[in-house]
Design a protein around this nucleic acid. Sequence first.
DNA 1: TTCACATCGGAAACAGTGTTACCAAGATAC
DNA 2: GTATCTTGGTAACACTGTTTCCGATGTGAA
Lengths: 223, 223
Amino acid sequence: MKVILIHNEDKPSQYAGRELKTYQEVRLQNTENLRKIVVDAAAAILQEEGPEAVTVRKVSQKMGCSTKIIYSLFVNKEGLAQQLYLEGCKLLAQRFEEVSPSSDPLQHLLDLGEAFWQFGQDHTSYYKLMFGGAFAEFKPDAESMQGTMTAISRLLILISTAQQQGQISDEEETGTIVSAIWASLHGVIHLYMSGFLGDVDAAHTVYRQTMVLLSQSLFAVSK
Amino acid sequence: MKVILIHNEDKPSQYAGRELKTYQEVRLQNTENLRKIVVDAAAAILQEEGPEAVTVRKVSQKMGCSTKIIYSLFVNKEGLAQQLYLEGCKLLAQRFEEVSPSSDPLQHLLDLGEAFWQFGQDHTSYYKLMFGGAFAEFKPDAESMQGTMTAISRLLILISTAQQQGQISDEEETGTIVSAIWASLHGVIHLYMSGFLGDVDAAHTVYRQTMVLLSQSLFAVSK
DNA sequence: TTCACATCGGAAACAGTGTTACCAAGATAC
DNA sequence: GTATCTTGGTAACACTGTTTCCGATGTGAA
């Protein structure tokens, strides 16, 4: 896929018609388009060849332009990585949305947990980029954290509701519990991806065991 | 620290005296000494400047020799990383050894968990090298897994004993439970080190919460 | 002791990486 | 139409892991 970059491709039509008028606005809009094209190209490489294959040269090569573009649009590689991170957040949120909420909050928790595992399996490259430290330099900024929180909001709501209804103790802060669940499940996925837990079946068993241990403890008060 | 490399430094004395006799044996012994010196130099850089500072050039520079040495002794950088991994295992095992076993297995579990957290805090560079994916290429081989198992053997023994004494359900395999605990605690540490859990106090709170959730569930049958 | 052989390690190069300086070409504004 | 200013491609820089080449050095036999 080669993309020919024409900065002012649709300038005439925009000048002719709508609300976009000033040069700055047009340039900004096209910059935004450009950013999207670059992110898409990077995302394609990420999914096809893995995180370590996402190099500035390779992305620009796929676009048919020089590396300068990426630095003009994203400051540095980390800036591009942040956009990919946000893309991953969308995919994760989408995966959570597909989980139909069970009337039983415990079952709902198990379903969300399983969805998180499946996300890791289906989008390994994204997972490694986001949480696996594939880009060692990458630290989530405010926007990234926002995207993360949006993605796992389903989990937050579930725990918060269960606390309000007395199914989970409200002695601990909701955020602390959510973080504990998230981190625990992440730990299994990360250790598996690092090669410490054997094959996928063994790892999945450990994962389910972790979910059971956590949920048993959380919902113990209701029994 | 400059190290002058003399391959046959102590050859005469060895020829004069003890059990080491053939050329091959002497060479092997000195190769072993050399390996140790290189690993020590790499470990020093690791602890002083972090995992990303451990480059082949830097290590050889610290030794005052060329990069060739490292490739002669360890095949490639990953080979050196494996040795550093085993060094980290020793430190971790040592940290676990310092935990005085409590008569209460639940307390013992909490103490071991806390020791694991402290290891991550005190030896952050080692932790990142071992479990943080600081060297993306690094996958544990058989020897590394052996070292890991030795390190966490205390945890294995604790769970196994508790199962035999009926304090923990023996429906699940011991290995699965140990992996679940290990992975969960690792997840909190890793997410914290990646910048997802805020400052150290917030992360430690999540860590303790995770330990409480897991241990509550594990020791629930005894109540 | 001397000479052929094997080994060992240092210098330099190779193929990558992220990043930046420079400069020509083009678009913008008057 | 011209002056200005932005834009992006080329080539370089400073790194990385790794390999190739070759001289020096140690080894074993005559």
